[in-house]
Simulated scan of single mutants.
Amino acid sequence: MTVPAPDSRPCPCGSAQVLAACCGRYHAGPLHLQAPDAEALMRSRYSAFVLEDADYLLQTWHPRTRPAQLDFEPGLRWLGLQVRRHLPGPDGRAEVEFVARSKLGGRAHRLHETSRFVHEGGRWFYVDGTLHGA
């Protein structure tokens, strides 16, 4: 079985594009190549969780709320992303509601969150989120 080159794999965010043409360009791109809106940043962050790219996640987390480090759950497998809504605001803020599905140890999980983002210095940053239901 031939494994596709990393840049030609389908993007984990579910866009139906290859990784290199979608979220991968933000992960590996120069600093001036930034996600154009909060939804694109959220999708690229989901893909970074799938790929366990802690550097990208920390760089796109607002400094006010950014953790010192990220640890990934061993054995966690991300299964898909559904963006429910993207609410851009006129004040450089936006919200993105999404559901991310995963599996760990044979058990399926859903992460339903409304994430808050802010646009500062020409870049979008993840600030925090509100979880919905369990």
Rank of each mutant, 00 (worst) to 15 (best):
M1R: 14
T2H: 14
T2Q: 12
P6K: 12
P6C: 03
D7F: 12
S8Q: 14
R9M: 14
P10W: 10
P12Q: 08
C13N: 09
L19S: 00
A20M: 07
A20G: 14
A21P: 02
C22W: 07
C22T: 09
C23K: 04
R25E: 05
A28V: 02
A28F: 10
A28Q: 13
P30N: 12
Q34G: 09
R45W: 00
Y46W: 08
S47D: 06
V50R: 04
V50K: 01
D55W: 00
Y56W: 10
Q59V: 03
Q59G: 02
T60I: 08
W61R: 01
R64K: 11
T65D: 08
R66T: 02
A68C: 01
Q69W: 00
F72S: 10
E73P: 00
P74M: 10
P74F: 07
L79E: 12
L79D: 09
V83P: 03
R84D: 13
R84E: 15
H86M: 05
H86W: 05
P90Q: 15
A94M: 04
V96G: 08
E97H: 13
V99H: 02
A100W: 00
R101Y: 09
S102Q: 11
S102V: 04
R107I: 11
H109S: 13
R110S: 15
L111I: 03
L111W: 01
H112Y: 04
H112P: 05
T114L: 09
T114R: 14
